[in-house]
Design a protein around this nucleic acid. Structure first.
Lengths: 237, 237
DNA sequence: CCAGGAATGGCACTCAGTACCCTCGATTAT
DNA sequence: ATAATCGAGGGTACTGAGTGCCATTCCTGG
């Protein structure tokens, strides 16, 4: 015991992680899955993890927070990602930021699925998840607000697009989680983000414009065919 | 005292409201605004309201819930509204449903503004408000899901549009609340809902389509002129 | 006048979260 | 080398939210 605690892994890559955090998370999940969230007390968790009660609250601000141990880091990642590079379409950028979150879930499929089953059942965890997601949404909205600064409805656009991105991400994520992690998470995400991009066409003058040039007197079925092809995005024939 | 408690107002319209609920809410708000939310205990509230501690939790499930006393009724109103009538454009319908919520806020401007100042400052109240708003969003999404049933991306559309409506509503509501209730709440809401309708054009072919018919080899400035005219919605020349 | 039910008040209890202080081990200054 | 310091962890006691249980009261129907 003394030798296992002694070394702090100074030769590791930058972040020397305390193993106690992981021990708490693991003990908590085992108990939550076995007995249920509200049937498990903090004392149960710290007893199983072999740590002091006070240490639990040193690492997690609440009993609910232990279920979402990696979101602080992920939010920091997203913030850095958005602050880094400011060119390109804003909507594309927030869609990419949302992919960061999905990737984080996909890194630990079994953990994510277990957590999903927990949050679905326990109201307190659902509420806490809402607070977590809300921080992502506010981060995206804040970024969009700076990009839309000056435009008349900029704040409105920022809020609505951020909410749409988060909702689309959650929809794709949930369908993946419901499949038990078997489906391809990226496929559903692609469809979800495509719908967002389609809805909020980025440079967005009034609306997407399709131009079809036809001879006067051309047969109507040909015109319709060309319009449909153009709306699909095909190159002009 | 005995005579004031005696009558239950049987001659009132259907809902005979117990005055104790209102007394608790009023006492709670006075204390929250004076000392702050977390500096006020349940015992403080019930002492000021002149009721028993147990009665508080009979009317409100938590300390936070007393700050949102009318949302249960409003959510029931929205549910009934959406269940009532099922024709017309789904997007229009959820926009109207969102107006119900705004109207509820606008009925008591000073109360809504005071609550806004509280929720902005207290993290626990922000979280609780998220849970409240989430129920509205889920109700809207559930309605849209039934309306979009069968369509390929129906669930995705439902979630995204519901989130957009809620975000647009919140944007309009917040700008009204920040003005202290002085602005016209309906004006901002109209703009917000217009943006939603514009983004999710209802029957939604892929996108708005402008068709311009021109002769092959026509001068480009004429083509551009016609495209611009069509995009403005002018009748074809 | 008397059941009986609904609303209320009064405890006592569990448990989350916090404040305060102690211990131990490692690093550094003298 | 020894002492001072510092940081991570452990322990104890406390506050306050939320719940279960039971007594009381008031209101209603027989």
């Amino acid at each position: 015991m003394t030798e296992a605690r002694g070394r702090k892994q100074a030769t590791e890559s930058g972040t020397a992680k305390p193993p106690m955090r992981e021990a708490i998370v693991e003990a908590a999940f085992q108990l939550f899955l076995a007995r249920g969230f509200e049937q498990t007390t903090i004392d149960d968790i710290v007893a199983r993890a072999g740590v002091g009660r006070r240490s639990f609250f040193r690492h997690f601000p609440s009993k609910e927070a232990v279920v979402f141990p990696d979101h602080d880091r992920c939010l920091a990642d997203m913030t850095r990602f958005l602050a880094a590079d400011d060119d390109g379409h804003p909507v594309e950028r927030v869609c990419e930021a949302a992919r960061l979150v999905l990737r984080m879930y996909a890194e630990n499929p079994e953990f994510s699925v277990q957590r999903y089953r927990l949050t679905r059942k326990v109201p307190g965890l659902r509420t806490h998840e809402l607070a977590v997601v809300w921080r992502y949404e506010r981060t995206l909205a804040q970024y969009l607000r700076t990009r839309f600064a000056g435009r008349p409805g900029g704040s409105l656009r920022a809020d609505v697009i951020a909410a749409a991105v988060v909702a689309a991400h959650n929809n794709a994520l949930r369908s993946w989680l419901r499949s038990g992690g078997d489906d391809d998470a990226t496929a559903a995400m692609d469809e979800a983000m495509a719908y967002v991009r389609e809805s909020f066409g980025d440079p967005g003058p009034p609306a997407d414009v399709v131009v079809v040039v036809a001879r006067r007197g051309a047969p109507m079925w040909r015109v319709v065919q060309e319009v449909e092809a153009a709306a699909r995005g095909d190159s002009p024939t």
